[in-house]
């Protein structure tokens, strides 16, 4: 039988992968993709426990998380475009000063 524990461990693996991706990658776009991986891990947990405790509130919260993830992706990609215009690169190492 597949219980909530299986889902929690799968979510943990995806979260750690996303975490490593955020810390390791140089490319701004790939860092954003790793962030989406982390959001998905959180959603997986919510869905598993929503089923386990027979409460739909977890699914509602997952809907909100998906909405916030969409907003975050839009702003992040806007930042990438701005960075590309300003610095001509998407490498995070080159985005090292506050003044625009």
């Amino acid at each position: 039988m597949i219980g909530a524990m299986h889902y929690v461990f799968l979510s943990l693996i995806l979260f750690v992968l996303g975490l490593i991706g955020v810390m390791v990658r140089k490319n701004f776009i790939t860092v954003l993709m790793s962030l989406e991986l982390i959001f998905n891990a959180a959603n997986l947990n919510l869905i598993a426990f929503s089923d386990r405790f027979s409460s739909l509130s977890g699914q509602i919260l997952a809907i909100f998380i998906i909405t916030i993830a969409a907003a975050e992706a839009a702003i992040g990609l806007g930042l990438i475009i701005a960075l590309l215009r300003l610095k001509d690169t998407a490498s995070l190492d080159d985005a090292n000063e506050m003044r625009g």
Binding site: M23, V24, K26, N27, A90, D93
Partner: peptide
């Protein structure tokens, strides 16, 4: 432009992987 020569932040990559695995 999206592909810097080095894909990974070489200096902190091993430490980052170690930290991630430890958190997991």
């Amino acid at each position: 432009k999206l592909q810097p020569e080095a894909v990974f932040l070489s200096a902190q990559a091993p430490m980052a992987v170690l930290a991630g695995v430890l958190v997991g």
